[in-house]
C-alpha cells in the first residue's frame, strides 16, 4: 500500500513537472517560433512618452541602437507617445510581430498590464514604479537603480562644496528620483556630516526655465553646489559660477567648468539580459532593476574630465575604496524611496 501511495505521489509530481515543462515549451515556442531562426535578430520596439533626447529615455535608446549595431536585434521606436495613446501603440507593435517591447509605463501601469496579458507571446520590458507580477509572466520591470553612482557623485559634491550647502532641484518626488537623491545626500555626508540640503520639486519634467529659477533661488540662499536632476539647473550654476553634479547622463561637455561629475546610467546590461532571455525562451516576470547596479555595470561615475586633479584626494580615496566595496558586495548603498526634504 505504502509503496503504491508513494508511486502515486511520485507520478503526480512527475505529472506536474512534465506539465510545467510542457507549458514552458509552449511559451518558448510562442516566443521563438522556429529554433532554427534563433540567431536571427529579435524584433524590438521601444515606446517612449517623451522625445528620445530626454536623459532617462536616451539611455534606453542608446542601448537599443548599440544592440542593433551588433546585429542582436532590429529596433524601431515611437517617441513622444502620450500616455493616453500608449496602450494602442503597444498593441500595434505586438500585432506587428515584435518579440520584445521596451518602454516606460509609469503613467499607464494598469492599462499596459492589460495589453501585456493579451499578448502572452510578446515579452514586455517596462520601466515601472511597481514590482513584477508572477501572474503576468511576459512583463518584466526595470528602473534606473543607479544609487551606487549617485552615492559616489555625492562624495564628490560633499568634498567640493565650500559653503556646506547643496541645492537639489527635482521634477517629481517619484521613487526613481527620491532614491538617487537620498544616495547622493548620503555620499555628500560622508565627506561633511554637517552639510545641509535644499530640496525642491518643480512639478514638471520639462520646464528648464522653471528649474533654472528654482536653482537661482537656492544659490541666493547659499548653495554653492547643485544636484542637476533636471535640465536648466546646470545653466543656473554656470551663470552664477558655482558647481553642479550631473545625473543619468554626462553633461560635462555642455558645461565644462560647471559639472564636476555625473552619475551615469547604462541600460545595456538590462537590455542585453532581456535579449538573451527572449532568445533562449526564459523571459519571465522579473525585476530587472538590479541590472542597473554598479556591480552589474549598469551605473558608473562619469570621468572627471575637466575637473581631473581638482577633486580633493580624500574624496578620491573614499570613492576608490567604496567603488571596490560596492562591486564586491561588501558595501551596499541604501535604497530609500521616501520623498527627500530640505535639511
Amino acid at each position: 500500500m505504502t509503496k503504491i501511495k508513494t508511486a502515486a505521489r511520485l507520478s503526480r509530481r512527475q505529472f506536474l513537472t512534465s506539465t510545467a515543462a510542457g507549458a514552458l515549451a509552449v511559451a518558448l515556442a510562442g516566443v521563438l517560433p522556429d529554433p532554427v531562426l534563433a540567431a536571427d535578430p529579435i524584433k524590438v520596439a521601444g515606446i517612449y512618452t517623451v522625445p528620445v533626447e530626454q536623459q532617462w529615455v536616451s539611455r534606453i535608446h542608446v542601448a537599443a541602437l548599440a544592440a542593433q549595431e551588433r546585429g542582436d536585434i532590429t529596433y524601431t521606436f515611437s517617441e513622444n507617445t502620450s500616455n493616453t495613446d500608449y496602450p494602442r501603440v503597444m498593441r500595434e507593435y505586438a500585432e506587428q510581430g515584435h518579440k520584445l517591447i521596451i518602454g516606460e509605463i509609469f503613467g499607464v501601469e494598469a492599462e499596459a498590464r492589460e495589453v501585456a496579458a493579451d499578448y502572452p507571446d510578446v515579452a514586455f520590458l517596462m520601466g515601472s514604479s511597481f514590482k513584477e507580477d508572477p501572474s503576468l509572466p511576459n512583463l518584466a520591470v526595470f528602473d534606473n537603480y543607479i544609487q551606487d553612482a549617485s552615492y559616489l557623485s555625492g562624495i564628490v559634491a560633499g568634498a567640493m562644496s565650500e559653503s556646506g550647502n547643496i541645492g537639489m532641484v527635482g521634477g517629481f518626488p517619484i521613487p526613481e528620483v527620491n532614491r538617487l537623491m537620498h544616495a547622493f545626500m548620503a555620499g555628500a555626508r560622508e565627506m561633511n556630516p554637517d552639510i545641509t540640503f535644499q530640496v525642491s520639486f518643480i512639478g514638471s519634467w520639462f520646464d528648464p526655465p522653471k528649474a533654472k529659477e528654482t536653482a537661482f533661488a537656492m544659490i541666493e540662499n547659499g548653495a554653492d553646489m547643485l544636484y542637476a536632476e533636471r535640465f536648466g539647473v546646470s545653466d543656473a550654476a554656470k551663470e552664477k559660477g558655482i558647481l553642479a553634479i550631473g545625473n543619468v547622463i554626462d553633461t560635462q561637455g555642455d558645461y565644462p567648468d560647471t559639472v564636476v561629475a555625473s552619475a551615469l546610467w547604462h541600460f545595456e546590461p538590462t537590455l542585453d539580459a532581456a535579449i538573451a532571455k527572449v532568445r533562449d525562451g526564459s523571459f519571465v516576470a522579473a525585476d530587472y532593476g538590479t541590472y542597473s547596479f554598479m556591480k552589474e555595470g549598469g551605473a558608473s561615475l562619469a570621468p572627471f574630465g575637466t575637473f581631473e586633479g581638482k577633486i580633493p584626494q580624500a574624496a578620491l580615496d573614499l570613492i576608490a575604496s567604496r567603488t571596490a566595496a560596492i562591486k564586491d558586495g561588501s558595501y551596499v548603498v541604501e535604497i530609500n524611496d521616501a520623498e527627500p526634504t530640505s535639511s
Binding site: V50, P51, N80, S204, W205, F206, D207, P208, P209, K210, K212, F231, G232, D235
Partner: peptide, 15 residues
C-alpha cells in the same frame, strides 16, 4: 523661453 530664459528648446517647456 528659448532665447532669453533658457538657451535651448525642449518639447514640453511652455508647460
Amino acid at each position: 523661453l528659448t532665447l532669453s530664459a533658457f538657451d535651448s528648446f525642449f518639447f514640453d517647456m511652455v508647460n
